[in-house]
Simulated assay, not measured.
Amino acid sequence: MNAHDPSTSRGNWARWFGLGGSRSDEDESAAGHPGAGPAASETPSDRRRRQILDDLTRFLDTHRLPVTAETLGLAHDIVTGADPPLVRLVTERVASGAPLTLEWLEQSAALREATDGAQGVHTLARSLERAIAQFAQTATRARTAASGYNKALAAHVDEMGASDSCEVPCSSITTLTTIAREMLRRTRDIEREMNRSERETQTLQQNLEDARREAEIDHLTGLPNRRAFEAVFAEEFEEAQAGRDALCVAFCDIDRFKRINDTHGHEAGDRVLRTVAQALAELSNDRCHVARHGGEEFVVLLRGSNLKEACAILDDAREALSLRRLVNRVTNTPFGRISFSAGVADAHAYADRREALRAADEALFRAKLSGRNRVMAAGLDDWAGFRVVPAAPPGDDGEP
């Protein structure tokens, strides 16, 4: 069964939270094992739906959560793996032994809504930038037209004023000349205002661009942040589909980063984050985009690379980092082996970008469960890898 199959994803997450049966139990049920009851006549879709309902019930009951529309929605996203960021938060909380309370879930949901709201503000800023750019073009055209009109009008006024003979009364000529000169004065005022508006618009455009660039940078690592990545992914996904170009997306997560923080302190942990960010940033070019997705997790977009090639690129970076021996210069204490795990997905193998990200996230999850410090591909039961990960020296598991 492929790793991106919804039932497989659900089973992985459910077993991690202590829900659902064993793999053998699932196989027996799928085969119509005697005593399975209605399952023998159910379609695969029926079984999946029933399993989701069972997982939802067990999840709410295990954590003693009330049955409300909100908790049902959150529980569904958790047990099916539909919301990878929320799943990771819940996984960490369950693993730490902390209770999974309604208050905590509501806070997590509020945080997610805040993130979505920030994305909405970003989209609005983009629309405003386009509107300002269009206004600037209109102002430029209007200023140019006004300038040309002024020159032509000035020439005619000078010609009329210099004329000694005419077929109409000279008083009429004088009146027309006066009116024309007033019109000329007003159009020149308009031209000056248009010039001023154009300069202000250009300044506002630059300020918006600077603010947007500032908002899209992760200031700890210097990499683009999640918001910037989402915009790039949307653009690259559309262009790659139109041009039938290969496109892969990967999640990379620093192995046992919490232990680094606990052992060496958060300032040292920040330095490790920057080191890993620099190692991944070396992959960046116009066909490869690297961003910090949040916490100790990074996301990589590889255009023009198929699944095997993308895995090889990340595996090279993984090996190069894991072979380094970093030392905390503040305490002169070795960090031990710093490594990351990665999950890679072919973006075109899924219905949309969200599904591709979810598949890469699950592949990362499998890489973690398989021992860390490795790259795994979505859609494969196993990834043989490109090199054998060396065993840690006796008494040293590669951790700080």
Results as ranks from 00 to 15, higher is better:
residue 222 G to W: 12
residue 5 D to I: 05
residue 192 R to N: 14
residue 395 G to T: 06
residue 91 T to M: 15
residue 297 E to N: 03
residue 332 N to A: 14
residue 14 A to H: 01
residue 171 S to F: 10
residue 177 T to F: 03
residue 256 R to E: 08
residue 96 S to E: 10
residue 395 G to D: 06
residue 312 A to C: 13
residue 137 Q to Y: 12
residue 74 L to H: 00
residue 299 V to Q: 01
residue 126 R to P: 04
residue 235 E to F: 05
residue 389 V to F: 06
residue 195 N to A: 11
residue 292 R to T: 03
residue 99 P to I: 06
residue 359 A to N: 01
residue 398 G to R: 02
residue 189 D to H: 15
residue 264 H to M: 06
residue 317 A to N: 02
residue 146 A to F: 04
residue 231 A to F: 11
residue 220 L to W: 09
residue 181 R to T: 11
residue 341 S to W: 03
residue 50 R to K: 11
residue 387 R to S: 12
residue 120 G to K: 12
residue 389 V to K: 07
residue 168 V to G: 05
residue 325 R to S: 13
residue 260 I to R: 01
residue 76 H to K: 12
residue 135 F to D: 15
residue 88 R to K: 13
residue 376 M to P: 00
residue 87 V to C: 07
residue 399 E to M: 11
residue 284 S to A: 10
residue 184 L to M: 10
residue 244 R to M: 11
residue 54 D to E: 14
residue 356 A to M: 05
residue 356 A to I: 03
residue 108 S to T: 11
residue 322 S to H: 04
residue 307 L to M: 11
residue 345 A to S: 14
residue 282 E to T: 10
residue 95 A to P: 04
residue 291 A to H: 03
residue 220 L to R: 06
residue 22 S to K: 09
residue 357 L to W: 02
residue 8 T to G: 06
residue 355 E to Q: 14
residue 297 E to H: 02
residue 132 I to R: 10
residue 110 A to W: 10
residue 297 E to P: 01
residue 276 V to Y: 00
residue 79 V to W: 00
residue 399 E to Y: 13
residue 362 E to L: 14
residue 287 R to C: 07
residue 11 G to T: 07
residue 373 N to R: 04
residue 104 W to Y: 08
residue 269 G to W: 00
residue 251 F to C: 03
residue 76 H to E: 13
residue 282 E to W: 06
residue 354 R to L: 10
residue 153 L to N: 04
residue 56 L to P: 02
residue 177 T to N: 15
residue 343 G to D: 03
residue 346 D to S: 05
residue 292 R to N: 05
residue 122 H to Y: 08
residue 17 F to V: 05
residue 277 A to C: 06
residue 66 P to T: 07
residue 123 T to A: 10
residue 392 A to E: 13
residue 193 E to G: 09
residue 399 E to T: 13
residue 325 R to W: 07
